[in-house]
């Protein structure tokens, strides 16, 4: 994904994922196969559950459901798409790069794909939480697994 994405295109990507999220639904079939983390926010409207299906150190499926604002919906939707099929190590690397980007540190844009549309979130500090809420949930699940593997 080129860094030279115009503001117009960035806005379009966020709105697309907000208006037509691909992964905003509860898991199909047996819910108990999924890891889930509930996240909410005192400041924003967000109140979501992130579901992740893992097998053999890999993210097999990811989705989310609940009440969420534009930024948290689209950032979580983009995240789910990015993560499906990734190994834990790959997924952890992507989460790390995303957080680096959000907090204005050096980051590897190559692995973030559309998620780079949130590169300027730090300018609206009050919304950092919206842009990271789904990612934090996933990170928690990855962390949890990491410990279980050991």
């Amino acid at each position: 994904m080129p860094i030279s994405l115009s503001p117009m295109m960035m806005r379009q990507i966020i709105m697309d994922h907000y208006e037509n999220p691909q992964y905003k639904h509860a898991p199909e079939g047996d819910l108990s196969r999924y890891e889930q983390v509930h996240m909410d926010s005192a400041n924003c409207i967000d109140d979501i559950i992130v579901y992740v299906l893992v097998k053999d150190n890999r993210v097999i499926d990811a989705c989310f459901d609940g009440v969420a604002c534009t930024i948290s919906t689209s950032s979580t939707d983009i995240m789910c798409g990015l993560m499906i099929g990734k190994t834990f190590d790959e997924a952890k690397y992507i989460v790390e790069q995303y957080n680096n980007m959000i907090h204005e540190k050096e980051y590897d844009a190559n692995v973030l794909d559309e998620a780079i549309v949130f590169m300027n979130t730090s300018k609206q500090a009050a919304r950092i939480h919206c842009a990271t809420i789904g990612w934090d949930a996933l990170d928690e699940i990855l962390e949890h697994h990491h410990h279980e593997e050991k």
Binding site: C44, I45, C69, T70, K123, Q124, A126
Partner: peptide, 12 residues
């Protein structure tokens, strides 16, 4: 427009 987005816009 989502309320938080509107407030963020006003902040800007």
């Amino acid at each position: 427009v989502f309320a938080q987005d509107l407030a963020t816009y006003l902040n800007s």
